[in-house]
Write a protein that binds this DNA or RNA. Sequence first.
DNA 1: CCGTTATCTTTACAACGGTAAGATGGCGGC
DNA 2: GCCGCCATCTTACCGTTGTAAAGATAACGG
Lengths: 182, 182
Amino acid sequence: MPYHHGDLRRAILDAAIESISAHGSAGLSLRELSRRAGVSHAAPIHHFGDKAGVLTALAAEGYELLADALAAAGDEFVEAGVAYVRFAVTYKAHFEVMFRPDAYHPDDPAVVTARNRAREALTAGVHAQTARTGRDARVTGVAAWSLVHGFATLWQTGALPADLGEDVTASAREVAKVLFTP
Amino acid sequence: MPYHHGDLRRAILDAAIESISAHGSAGLSLRELSRRAGVSHAAPIHHFGDKAGVLTALAAEGYELLADALAAAGDEFVEAGVAYVRFAVTYKAHFEVMFRPDAYHPDDPAVVTARNRAREALTAGVHAQTARTGRDARVTGVAAWSLVHGFATLWQTGALPADLGEDVTASAREVAKVLFTP
DNA sequence: CCGTTATCTTTACAACGGTAAGATGGCGGC
DNA sequence: GCCGCCATCTTACCGTTGTAAAGATAACGG
């Protein structure tokens, strides 16, 4: 616990995650995060530089976590897709911020390296799949990514019909299977 | 041209569309919109009640336009999917707002009726398709919607690889075909 | 033990969203 | 043709926000 607060950086990030998970990222207030962390409203500036800097750190962390989750899921597409959706649901706040590039600094070095790592982990699974089935890897990869990404975002915004059931993982697996079963 | 301004409501909406298309919906300022329309910063309140009210009107308009586009595209899934993507690209600001329910009033009556209309137009195409191919309509419908929605959002955020080419319609058609060709 | 430096606080300012009260002007009723 | 009504817009104001600048505080290295 190095300094006055202990670990303000993590405290702010955790507060942001909690706030975004509860109320979305639209009305996020930097001063509110500072209040929750018990510091003055200008304290986070030193760690993040900016309000967008907080979201930038969150996006970078999200891409790292996503890359880990995809790597752990292995090469098979359906399981990788399920892992993608499970990540989106588990790390709801991260996922929401990651794909809102107008709210942070998308060219931040930490973000781009983490994003590349996640992208490689994602395409690796699809390439293994297309090698087995003999399809166009590029188009199929985009289709697979689109499918799981769309399912995740629609689930998050509550746009999907309610009769899908509560188990996201099971629904995601069913939906992902559609892409590779004739 | 009924009153002092002429049609302030439309002017504010158009200004919002332009601003969101250019800089995203994160930093949208009601006062900036008022300035562009040449009225005082409190004038839009009377028409929209709220900043979220502006986005609510935009979302409702977006769902109406989407329903029209889907109805015009017909029953075949691939063309309906292409129409979905084309809508997202053409009406970028609308699409961005529509799926950001924490930024507006998602229970607004105009929004829910328009959204239901769009949803029916969407599922109609999928049902026609599944009747032809004999698949589970519910799961296939969600998969189809997820596919085109994910493609559209990924395209919008610039997350897709650049080697797809510039023609969104052609790329979308290729990707949509993947779902129904073994 | 002392100075350096990262960390945090205080103070200040412009912009924002929202409210309330007043001004403006088109429109229908007489 | 005139008057009152009411939708529309303006002005003034309040609390909050993000950001910058300057000062205080305390951990750490020499």
